[in-house]
Simulated scan of single mutants.
Amino acid sequence: MTPERIMIIRHAEKPAAGLGGGVDENGKADEESLAVRGWQRAGALARFFSPAEGAHAARLRPATVFAPGTGPASKSRRAMQTVTPLVALLQQTSHVEFVTTYLKDDGAALMRDVLARSGIVLIAWEHKVLPSLIGYMPHAPKVPASWPEDRFDLVWVLDRTGSEWSFTQLPQMLLAGDSAEPIK
Rank of each mutant, 00 (worst) to 15 (best):
V129F: 10
A108Q: 14
F49P: 03
A63E: 15
W125D: 12
T100V: 09
L133C: 08
F98T: 03
H127I: 06
R59D: 15
A109G: 10
A52N: 11
G135N: 12
V155K: 00
M173V: 04
T161S: 13
A17F: 04
F48Q: 06
S118T: 15
D178Y: 00
E13I: 02
G135E: 14
P138S: 11
P182F: 00
L110W: 11
D24G: 03
I8F: 00
I8Y: 00
A180Y: 00
G119R: 09
S166T: 15
K104M: 06
E32P: 00
M80I: 05
P144G: 04
K28L: 08
W165H: 09
V155P: 00
P144T: 08
A140R: 13
F167Q: 06
K75L: 10
E4V: 07
V143H: 12
P148T: 08
E126Q: 15
M173F: 00
V83E: 07
R77V: 15
G135L: 12
A12Y: 08
Q92M: 12
K28N: 12
I123E: 03
Q169L: 04
G22D: 12
V99T: 10
D30A: 13
I8S: 00
G54E: 10
Y136A: 11
M173Y: 00
G162H: 04
V87H: 05
A16Q: 13
A67S: 14
S76I: 01
V121E: 10
H56V: 05
H11Y: 10
D106I: 03
A88Y: 02
A55F: 06
D159R: 11
S74D: 15
L34P: 04
H56R: 13
A176V: 04
F49D: 07
P148K: 07
G54L: 06
P171N: 09
Q92P: 01
M137R: 09
L60K: 06
A29M: 03
L86R: 09
A109L: 14
L154V: 11
L89T: 08
P138T: 09
P131R: 05
D150T: 14
E149R: 13
T64A: 12
A55S: 13
A58Y: 02
A124N: 05
A55I: 07
L174A: 13
A12H: 09
I134Y: 05
L170M: 13
L122D: 01
A67D: 12
L154Q: 15
G54H: 07
A79K: 02
G119W: 07
M80V: 04
Q91Y: 01
T70Q: 15
T70H: 01
G162I: 09
A63Y: 02
E97F: 08
L89W: 02
V23G: 00
T2R: 13
Q81R: 05
L19T: 03
N26Y: 10
I6V: 15
W39T: 04
A52R: 14
D150Y: 05
L110S: 04
P85N: 11
E149M: 03
R61G: 04
I9P: 00
A79I: 01
G107P: 07
E4R: 10
S76W: 04
E181V: 12
S74F: 11
A29I: 07
P131E: 11
V96Y: 03
V87F: 08
M173S: 12
Q172H: 05
A46L: 04
V129A: 12
R151W: 02
L110C: 05
A57S: 11
P3R: 09
V114G: 10
L45G: 02
P15A: 13
Q81H: 11
R151G: 03
G69E: 09
G135P: 09
M1L: 06
S94Q: 15
H139D: 14
G21F: 01
